[in-house]
Amino acid sequence: MRSLIDIKDLSIEEIDELIVKANDIIENPKKYVHACDGLKLATLFFEPSTRTRLSFEAAMYELGGNVLGFSEAQSSSAAKGESVSDTVKTVSCYADIIAMRHPKEGAPLVASRKASVPIINAGDGGHNHPTQTLTDLLTIHREKGRFNNLTIGFCGDLKFGRTVHSLIEAMSRYQNIKVVLISPVELKLPSYIKHDVLRAHNIEYVQTTNLEDVMPTLDILYMTRVQRERFFNEDDYVRLKDSYILTPEKLVNAKEDLCIMHPLPRVNEISTEIDSDSRACYFKQVLNGKFIRMALILKLLGVE
């Protein structure tokens, strides 16, 4: 029995397998409509995340399975003080696989050590969110047809943005990747990621505060939201939230085949005028998220 807690749990070959499976699901959806007949996914969301939860639930329903669970801690036994360990031991009796979101970092790892069914980390605080990273990887692969030889710009909140950290980590395993880090000084990528990931893998990277200067070099632009919940201080949030807003003017010198990504939800960091631009891939990402989660559920359940 395997779980997915951290994107590093998966080898490059396993990621490739998931991409192949997701593409097969996209091309042959009918083949999979009964793949999980009689199986149940429990979505244990100790903090609300409508998008991720619905993506998991839609994925399981499209595989013919069923879903049970809760969408916030208040409607679970956690509100009575039950430990994560006890909750997952109990839910293991009802479901075949669990997708868990929890505000505390490391909670899904604790769950995976106690549960008797596979656990999928659906986000643990500001720490890991491996299915978002898989979603991003599927999108990159579908849009670019490769993982090697890419220049990826990450823009916005690079300090607290866990999706950025995980994607950098995942992409660092491929060949000839260049990373461009675009952020206000206050939200720069943490130095341990630069040291432990970028330098450790000899990844070429530049840091800048100016998006337009680097725009022509980018194959992928990964925008992020400056998240209110990651700040202890409201004043800092208000001061920084509008730092980097992508507008059509900023795209004037961008490549024709630039792929603009965003983990969503966006607030205002991508102008809605860009939604109709063929380079906007963020809503395709949402759809890809469902397909890669379907592929992951099949893999962890051992269903062919």
Binding site: S83, V84, S85, H102, P103, K104, E105, G106, A107, L109, V110, D124, G125, G126, H127
Partner: peptide, 13 residues
């Protein structure tokens, strides 16, 4: 010492 870590709330870990 990370207040966001699961060890901060689940004492038996």
């Amino acid at each position: 010492k990370n207040p966001r870590c699961i060890t901060s709330t689940e004492q038996e870990l």
